[in-house]
């Protein structure tokens, strides 16, 4: 499969568009169909396409298990941090209006929604890629 020039060229062309579409789905999630979970899964699908076309070892060289673990931690920290920030400012969990009222910045809740969606997207993408790494490798370097 590694020598097939058609698969390699097509996936090299398609992967950036899939990732741009995933980012669009994440950002567009507040006002339409989509959201952090779907965008993260679409982003992970681009990694699956890279694994199919270039092999697991080549993709692992760019993002290894440690990087995937850090991305997962960063994503869930963004999500839970904003949630508990609202809790600190006398609101409920993820109540953006409380943060907006305390800080006094207008339209802050839209930015916070986008940040939470980005955190969910990063965490879901990292978890999916981690599962794919574990299940598609041939046993080596699986921590």
């Amino acid at each position: 499969m590694m020598e097939n020039v058609v698969i390699r060229t097509v996936s090299r062309l398609a992967v950036p568009f899939i990732q741009i579409f995933a980012l669009y789905v994440i950002v567009h999630g507040a006002s339409g169909a989509g959201g952090g979970f779907q965008g993260g899964v679409v982003f992970a699908a681009s990694f699956i396409l890279m694994i199919i076309a270039f092999g697991t070892a080549n993709v692992r060289r760019r993002i290894d298990n440690r990087g995937i673990m850090w991305l997962s931690v960063i994503g869930i920290t963004i999500y839970a941090g904003i949630g508990f920030l609202a809790l600190l400012m006398a609101g409920n969990f993820l109540e953006y209006a409380a943060i907006e009222a305390v800080l006094g910045i207008p339209h802050l809740h839209g930015i916070l929604i986008d940040l939470v969606e980005a955190g969910i997207g990063i965490a879901v993408m990292a978890a999916m890629v981690s599962i794919i790494y574990d299940i598609s490798g041939n046993g080596e370097e699986s921590s």
């Binding site: 789905v25 169909a33 989509g34 779907q38 992970a44 699956i48 999916m128 794919i132 299940i135």
Partner: peptide
């Protein structure tokens, strides 16, 4: 539409790849 999106990405995309990778082992 939101559920349809989730079904298309997770149901038809990720699950199939995971099942095929599991069957290959």
């Amino acid at each position: 539409v939101d559920v349809a999106f989730t079904e298309a990405t997770v149901g038809a995309g990720i699950t199939t790849v995971l099942f095929i990778a599991a069957i290959a082992r």
